[in-house]
Design a protein around this nucleic acid. Sequence first.
DNA 1: GATGAATGAGTGTTCATTCAT
DNA 2: AATGAATGAACACTCATTCAT
Lengths: 197, 197, 197, 197
Amino acid sequence: MRVKEGNKREDIIKAAIKVFAKYGFYNAKISKIAETANVAAGSVYLYFKNKEDILYQIFTEIWEELNLKLKDIADSKTLSPIEKVNCIIDSTFDVFESNPALGIVFVNEQNHVNDTWNDFIKYYDSFLDLGETVIKEGIKKKIFYSDINVSVFRFFVFGGIRHSIQTWAKNPKAYSLTDFRNGIKELINNGIVIRSK
Amino acid sequence: MRVKEGNKREDIIKAAIKVFAKYGFYNAKISKIAETANVAAGSVYLYFKNKEDILYQIFTEIWEELNLKLKDIADSKTLSPIEKVNCIIDSTFDVFESNPALGIVFVNEQNHVNDTWNDFIKYYDSFLDLGETVIKEGIKKKIFYSDINVSVFRFFVFGGIRHSIQTWAKNPKAYSLTDFRNGIKELINNGIVIRSK
Amino acid sequence: MRVKEGNKREDIIKAAIKVFAKYGFYNAKISKIAETANVAAGSVYLYFKNKEDILYQIFTEIWEELNLKLKDIADSKTLSPIEKVNCIIDSTFDVFESNPALGIVFVNEQNHVNDTWNDFIKYYDSFLDLGETVIKEGIKKKIFYSDINVSVFRFFVFGGIRHSIQTWAKNPKAYSLTDFRNGIKELINNGIVIRSK
Amino acid sequence: MRVKEGNKREDIIKAAIKVFAKYGFYNAKISKIAETANVAAGSVYLYFKNKEDILYQIFTEIWEELNLKLKDIADSKTLSPIEKVNCIIDSTFDVFESNPALGIVFVNEQNHVNDTWNDFIKYYDSFLDLGETVIKEGIKKKIFYSDINVSVFRFFVFGGIRHSIQTWAKNPKAYSLTDFRNGIKELINNGIVIRSK
DNA sequence: GATGAATGAGTGTTCATTCAT
DNA sequence: AATGAATGAACACTCATTCAT
């Protein structure tokens, strides 16, 4: 028996991330993904139901990692609201830091994913909900302005992060992810933290 | 009866915006656009070189309108930096206010557009540059914090606006665009305006 | 406008009959059918939903013609049972007489058709029912043996006709269809008609 | 424990008969046959050259059995022509009586088989020839009508038997094979035997 | 012999684009 | 200009067959 080498699925995922990032989902050919993964085209279908399933698996991995991190933050009893916001930002960037292509896929194909499956809306919602909870907590503790439009805030920040990831991921050498991390944290802090005169 | 000239081109553009918004560029069929525009499929090619050209024309219209508005703002001698920021936000939303589908196309196909043509990068850049200029002006006038990371700021804000447009446009009845406008203005103001104790 | 020439559908049907007859449904390539019909492969899909639909249309045409003829026979007040049996045989052969390939398709793909659509079982059943009715009528009139197993008889005769069509159609030059017609009529007559000593 | 030799080949044959009967040759997957036979897909190729070879082996077995029986009948010095005809029918049904699926495969894939290999035409021909010989013998002995069109007769009867097998085999519970046997024998007898007033 | 993961040739189908009318 | 029938390139996916273990 030819033993399954155990990493072919992973090879294909990695290849798909590269190819999706470079060409976009619709222009990504299975043959190109297979070639990139050093695998025959047909082998892709041993591990994935179809082309969309590859995307599905990629997003599952991203969101599960993200969700795990966010849960910890949300449940934390020790972190202050401010720290929680910072952690959310850091955790999000952490997922993509070592893999800009994954960031591109995450940002560019999110719409496609949402239109195709319900599965990820729950993650997306819980991401936003977490942000909302933290902010409300901050407001309650009089750390954040009470008149923040939480709904607007969370979409705006999510979009800001998304776009930042994309900008960096498209050209990781031109931008420092650390600058993005810190810049965003500062912005949000300045934007919502009540400063004592 | 001779039909008003230019009608058909416009009909196709309008139809394409609807169809692109609903299905996304790659799942949008020319036949569907033609049908929506009450025009034969072949007629589309009298007004547009190909499918991508329709998208090109749509983005040209958006950016030209946006650019015009932004130029005025940039050149204004009377507006304060704060007012300029607010105007930028308002102008951007104005473009899509009466046409959510256009907003969806603008947000969702931006990547495709950037990857395909250089034409719009200049608009995109000048949009960001304007923001940058205004901010630097504000910093110079000691109205804005001097330590804002301008580069991060502009991407973040652009992303925030983009995502806000998308969120609203996907479900215009569920969200108030005015809330988004005001919320975003406030956020940015709180975030960058130096408040006197 | 390029006017639909009105016979392209028919060209494809004719080509498909040839190709299905020669290669069988599963080995028949759309590209081959299109080539035979002097049409582009894509054009096939202007007239037919898919490959199976072509087969469906072919069988619809056969059975509708056959059904029409059989109805007339069944309803006839003037034909004797013996004449009716003879007419059924003649009518069936008539359908394929000028088109052996059609006969091959009819015989060879009948199973596929029955497994795929319910539509044709009704025709098949009514074909058999008609035979049954005629025989029963003959029995009642004491023209046919009363102890004929009608159920067996009808399947046997149908199979005999089917196979005869196939044998002839595979090599129309080697066999005389008229011999088959007459031979079968005689057999059945000898087989079921009560002969006065 | 060493498994009885030859088991696996037989298992595959049995499984293939089931699967071919259910799905037809072209929709029968090797993987499904292997699964049904409790064997790995690759093992199929230890016993058979390819998918068609399985069919070839199945038909070889059928025809060899049939041929053996028919030879005995043909060579018999004691059987009368009428008895010989009856024996042919019985022997044919005997082959499939305990295995309806085999009957379905035999009937449905006969065309495929004839188009693919010459091997079986000889069996088919000798089957028909035997029938012919018997009939001619009967004619000579003045037991059968002299004006029977032997050529037509043999195709017709073969087709009738084929279709009867199929009808029964598709739904063995709904039909009695005995009824078919007897019905067919009667039909043929009535059809060809000269009855003394 | 046995396995089942891996292969890759083969094809139905879609749809942007063309072009005769 | 307008039409919409016709085109054919392109590609996801299947599955018989192979072969390393």
